[in-house]
Each structure stands twice: as C-alpha cells, then as structure tokens.
C-alpha cells in the first residue's frame, strides 16, 4: 500500500498551522452560533405574535435564508457591499454577519415551533397567577422552550460549523484552506498528502462537533 500522506503534517509547523486554521473556523462558528441563539429566541418569539406585518416580514426573511446559498450571501456581503455602499467589512466580519443572519432565521423558526408546541393553557395558568407577559416568557415559556429546542438546534449548530468551510471562498484561511496549502506545497515530496491531510481535517471537524451532540444527549437526559 502507498503512503497515506499523513507524514507531511509532521513537517515544520504544518500541524500547528492546521490547528490554527481550525481555531478560525471554530471562532467564526462560535460567535455566529451564540448570536444566532440569542437573536433566534427573540425572532422566534416575534414569529408567534399575531402581528400580520411582522409575520410577513419574518416569513420573507426565513424564505430568503432558505433559498439563498450561503456562498451567495457571503459574496454579497463581502464583495457586494464594498463597491455599492463603500463599506469596508473584513472577511471575518462578513462571515459572522452571514452565518448569524442564516442561523437567526433557522433558530427563530425552531424557537417558534417549540413555543407553539407548549399548550396555550400553560400561558393561561401563568397569567392566572399574576405573571405579566415578560415574566411568563422568562420564567415559564422560555425554560420549557429551550428544553425542547436542544435536540433540534444541535443539527443546525453542527451544520453551521461544517458550512464555515465556505469562508475560504472570501479569502479566510481556515482549516480547509490550510489543508489545501499544505497539500499544494508538498505536491512533489508527498503526492498522497491529499488523502491523509483531508482525513485529519475530517477528524478535526468530528472532534469539534461530537462533544456538542454528547452535551445535547446529556442535557436531554437531565431535563427529561
């Protein structure tokens, strides 16, 4: 059997560079995921209100996010706005904006579904005890919503982490880009590096996403 081409990772600082690239991916996803959860709670709550104007706007927003490929959104924010509006948005900021824009819409829809699945009479029982609207959401509805949300949002969060690989298209040097660079630089000395390096990238993504799904399983069990 030919060499797997993993050896290139032990040359120089290659492996360290790969980890640094991973950190870029994780950092972008982490910020975007946290912002998406917070904003998604708000958007999801707004979606359940019976305001026709808000409902329409949020529906359009959700559809836009679902229809548009994330890469197109990245290009619009990073390349598009610079010329048209003269905004100097860095690649990292563009990535965070796009991923938050996406995550908020989808998280909002998950939150909406979770809130809707809580029986109306839970709201009424809280109101009958004298809770006002804000207190009802804060003490009674949101804690129950979040418990229902965990299994649903894990899928979204891991999808967001995986999709950050697109940001190499706007020049961000994240884990996949570093992997490519390493492979290119060693094309002659280790022609098999593509297999080994990408396999390690796969492992790295796994190491990031797996604990999240373990945490979800743990929380689900605890809150059962």
């Amino acid at each position: 059997m030919d060499s797997l081409g993993i050896d290139v990772l032990f040359k120089g600082t290659n492996f360290l560079r790969l980890l640094q690239g991973l950190w870029v991916s994780v950092e972008i996803s982490l910020i975007a995921v946290v912002l998406s959860i917070i904003l998604g709670l708000v958007v999801g709550m707004l979606m359940t209100l019976n305001n026709p104007f808000l409902k329409t706007i949020l529906k359009v927003y959700l559809e836009v996010v679902r229809i548009m490929p994330q890469m197109v959104l990245l290009f619009i924010v990073y390349f598009g706005t610079t010329r048209v509006f003269g905004w100097e948005v860095s690649a990292e900021a563009s990535a965070i904006i796009v991923f938050t824009f996406w995550g908020t819409a989808e998280m909002g829809d998950l939150v909406r579904g979770s809130i809707k699945s809580i029986p109306v009479i839970q709201f009424e029982s809280a109101m009958a005890l004298g809770f006002n609207k804000v207190q009802t959401y804060f003490y009674i509805i949101f804690p129950q919503t979040i418990r229902r949300l965990i299994p649903l949002s894990i899928n979204l969060i891991t999808r967001m982490i995986k999709t950050t690989s697109l940001v190499l298209m706007i020049g961000i040097v994240e884990v996949l880009k570093v992997a490519q660079q390493i492979i290119e630089a060693n094309r002659n000395s280790s022609p098999n590096a593509a297999f080994g390096v990408f396999a390690v990238v796969f492992l790295l993504y796994f190491i990031v996403c797996w604990p999240i799904s373990r945490l979800a399983t743990y929380l689900e069990k605890r809150w059962e």
Binding site: I121, Q122, E124, S125, M127, L129, Q144
Partner: peptide
Amino acid sequence: TKLRQKIGMVFQSYELFP
C-alpha cells in the same frame, strides 16, 4: 396582573410547570 393575584384559579388539567 394585579387583579389576578386576588383571584386564584385551578384548572382541570392542573397546569403545573413541568
């Protein structure tokens, strides 16, 4: 909300907070 504090209510389906 102030008035409701003077009026307790118990429901058929209990509606405790799970």
